[in-house]
Amino acid sequence: MARTQNSPSDPVTKQRRQVTLYGLTWSMPIVIWQLIFFVFPLIFLFLISFWLVKNYRMVPGFDTINWVKMFSKGYFWDAYWRTLGYAGVATVVTSILAFPCAFALAFKVSPKVRRWALFFLIVPFFTSYLVRAYSWQIFLNDNGIFNTLFALIGLGPFQLLNNFFGTLVGYLTLCLPLVVVLQLTSLANVDRTLIEAAHNLGCGRLRTVFQVIIPLAKIGIILGAVFTFILSFGDFVSPYYLGGSKPPTLSILIIDTTKSGQQWPRAAVVAIVMILTLLTIMFASVAAAYRKRA
């Protein structure tokens, strides 16, 4: 690795171009750690997708049978499109629900309130997602709090749990605070004079939101959407404990295939397909976020 200093204007730093022990000390730990415990396991996962299972034990080899088998199974493709659809819906719903909140916090409250709101939005990130999902069970199940309340006014019972609604509530629990934070950060950085300029040129308030504010906050909005997609695409807690686990999503498929069926190579196939899907979506979104103009 050829090294140059970060501050090229500085004459003192300019000469230090060669690789030094000092530079290596700081740059190498992450490389070593992530190669051994992140990249290598993923490569290994890719390799075992070609291995075989005999007598409940994996045997090294090179056979495309797992790929062929998985790709020919209807349930795999069903799960694939379902997971993609769930994640897509979660992305759209979360982004839309988060936006008015982020907008209000960015433009309609004092900086002090905004700082506190930001802090409280970060809190849930450090609470157990499992416990939160379990709490929603208490609210959503057939004899749960919501249905008890509905019964009081003579409605229901509604099925709120073990369907996509339940799953979506879980995805929202996981993603909504994060998306609000990301959108808020982008919105708070929007240059207020540009909003005034839009008004000054006769652009109505709602129209300004769509014509000026959203384009200016594009990066945060896309980032929020990407995170929602990644998190809900890979999450197994919501579809399992709130969505009732059937029909399965890809992550449930992985768990079922490994924990009960011992079919590791096939789970590896699912995992690789998931990673490739996510990488594609991510690169496409980053490209969209940083593209110059719409």
């Binding site: 300029a197 839009a198 200016l216 719409a294």
Partner: peptide
């Protein structure tokens, strides 16, 4: 600052 729209 001129306030030109950077996305247009």
């Amino acid at each position: 600052s001129l306030a030109l729209f950077p996305f247009l």
